[in-house]
Structure formats: C-alpha cells, structure tokens
Design a protein around this nucleic acid. Structure first.
Length: 166
DNA sequence: TACCTGATTGTTCTT
DNA sequence: AAGAACAATCAGGTA
C-alpha cells in the first residue's frame, strides 16, 4: 500500500491549524493584552492600506511552487521574524540532537518539536511568545525604514544601513 | 558544486 | 472569515 503519503504541506498545516486554532486562540487572548500588537496592527494596516503595495517577495523565492523555499536571500527585503515556535524549535533542536545524535534530519525534529509544543504549558510557551513579540516590533521598525528607502530610491539600495535620510 | 526538499507552528497578509 | 504564504533549520539528494 501507499505507505508513502505525499501529503502536501497544505494538508498538514490545515489540519494542525484547525486543531490548534481553538487552543492557540485562548493563548493569544492572554498574550494580546500583554503586547500592544493591536496598536501596531492598526498602524501597520494604515500604512499598508496607504501604501497598498504588493508583498515584496524576492524573484527567487517566488512561491510558484508552494513546496519550494529559497535559501538564498539576495534581496534586501527584511525577512519575516521567526515565530515563537521557531524560537522554541531552535532550542529544542539542540536538546533533541543531544538526546538523538543519530537524528539529523530536521523533519524528525520538527515532528518531535511540534508534538512537544502542543503539550507544553502556556507558561512555558509564553516566554517564547514574548521573544517573538519583541522581534516583531523590531521587524516593523526595520520594515518601516526599508519602505522609506524604497520610496527614496530602491536603486540606491546597498548593504550600508545609512538611514539618515529622514 | 550548488540548490532544492521536507517538517514543524505562528504570524501576517490577501481576498 | 478563512485560506495562503512565508519565516529558520540542516542534512540528504539530485543535476
């Protein structure tokens, strides 16, 4: 039989999302008041609506192929910050490798990490959420300047972070 | 040699 | 409201 189930990432994600939506929804509620995301979101939406610009995606990472993800970042566009889960994954990965040095594939680690993430308590997750929230704030700032540069002159974009063009 | 793939959840955006 | 897409990692596989 088809032991190999080429499940599309979509299917898995969809299932996971549906199952975790309710659970995570509660956590988010608790986190919401903790971080002024709402305020930022409003600002972001306003900016976005005003800009009405399409998503700045790199030509290389064009998602024509949903499964393909480019690793090369040849674009100066600030990448999305890692989520709380990713921070946990980074830490979990180290611990997992120590206990399972034989397992090198991130696939297995991802599974184990996801499973543990679900059994983790909110208190344990909240610390990662807090980090992610902080990173998000920085990302917004970086993105704001990045947009500014684009308006100023994207052709002049360089690896120098001279943002004195206020 | 170099890039793509897989697998996880979270956030954000789009329609 | 709901779905789609992308974020990092890292070793293996392919051209």
């Amino acid at each position: 039989m088809g032991k190999k189930a080429p499940k599309s990432k979509k299917s898995l994600s969809a299932s996971a999302s549906v199952n975790g939506t309710s659970r995570i929804a509660e956590k988010k509620k608790l986190l919401r008041p903790k971080s002024p995301e709402k305020m930022k979101m409003t600002t972001r939406q306003t900016t976005r609506a005003s800009e009405k610009q399409k998503k700045p995606i790199s030509p290389k990472k064009f998602k024509a192929n949903p499964k393909k993800k480019i690793k090369k970042d040849g674009s100066n566009t600030p990448k999305k910050p890692p989520t709380a889960f990713f921070f946990f994954l980074e830490d979990f990965r180290k611990a997992y490798q120590e206990q399972n040095p034989d397992v090198k594939s991130m696939r297995d680690i991802g599974k184990a990490c996801g499973e543990k993430w679900k059994i983790m308590s909110y208190e344990e997750k909240v610390q990662y959420y807090d980090i992610a929230t902080e990173k998000r704030a920085e990302f917004e700032e970086v993105m704001a300047e990045y947009k500014k540069k684009q308006e100023s002159g994207e052709d002049q974009e360089s690896d120098d972070y001279s943002e004195f063009n206020e």
